[in-house]
Nucleic acid binder design. Structure first.
Ligand SMILES: [Mn+2]
Ligand SMILES: [Mn+2]
Ligand SMILES: [Zn+2]
Ligand SMILES: [Zn+2]
Lengths: 141, 141
DNA sequence: TTTCAAATGATAGTCATTCTCCTATAATAA
DNA sequence: TTATTATAGGAGAATGACTATCATTTGAAA
């Protein structure tokens, strides 16, 4: 992802383009595995040592509100972020905090079809995601 | 759920039976809609006014570790708990913090079958849950 | 360039949760 | 039933991820 693309994403959403926003969005994309705010700060401070912690949180919130990133649901009190906006699911490690993306078009279609036929009473579905919990058999990545 | 049943659950797990543990487990079962620690404390203090906040958190942790309750994944920094241990999914309201249980045996079977055929590379599945995000059409409950 | 709404930085504050340490008690043994 | 003891609970301080405040800076429109 080039910086010019990141600039365009911000412009499309009517957000001012700032070095901090570019760095943060770039960090989430590069880090890739659902980083925490702390992960993002550590990464950014290499090239951008003066960014304030509060700025990172404010930018993250702005990016979420403007649908350039998403929060990832966890059962911990540390927020995790995801720059992958296309429909996908998550593999959660049951013994660590590792979360990996899981793309499966066939599965998406099966689920969509299932809920087209079988509506949930009194509930309008906007999105369905799988939490797949288990163990990674390789430690790499 | 009778108190004697709750006592037995604790005993089965080798946990000491204390009034606090009974009250907390009973509260989560009665409250039912994935209460926070604060919800639980408010509920319990009616009949049990002296329970310490730290005790509630310590008991919740013990109940989770011993698989008598589960944490519910959210994208907020307030933990939510669930006493329903049978396999089920969750309906998340996209505009409030409401989370409801969703039971669907047919869906479970479909998903199980899907992942029996199509393994995820380098990942051993232990559990699959759906996050169904959307809007409740009735405000009751 | 000038202008200024919006963004950033520094720092203090919040609050859900955890820690520490002392006291009380449930479960077991005598 | 009482004594013993590991375990659990209570009180309050501490932690830490996140938020609020406000002075300063800056992106972008004019
Ligand atoms: Mn969470
Ligand atoms: Mn917290
Ligand atoms: Zn993802
Ligand atoms: Zn549930």
């Amino acid at each position: 992802m080039k910086i010019s693309e990141i600039r365009n994403k911000l412009i499309e959403k009517g957000l001012k383009v700032t070095p901090q926003r570019i760095a943060i969005l770039e960090a989430i994309i590069k880090l890739n595995n659902h980083p925490t705010a702390e992960n993002i700060i550590d990464y950014i401070r290499n090239n951008h040592p003066n960014i304030a912690t509060a700025t990172v949180y404010k930018v993250l919130d702005a990016l979420v509100v403007n649908e350039l990133i998403k929060k990832v649901k966890t059962e911990r009190d540390v927020m995790r972020y995801d720059a992958v906006m296309e429909n996908h699911h998550h593999l959660y490690c049951s013994e660590s905090n590792r979360i990996e993306d899981f793309f499966d078009k066939e599965l998406n279609e099966m689920i969509d079809k299932y809920f087209e036929n079988k509506k949930i009473p009194d509930f309008k579905i906007e999105d369905v995601k799988l939490q797949v919990i288990g163990k990674f058999l390789k430690d790499n990545e």
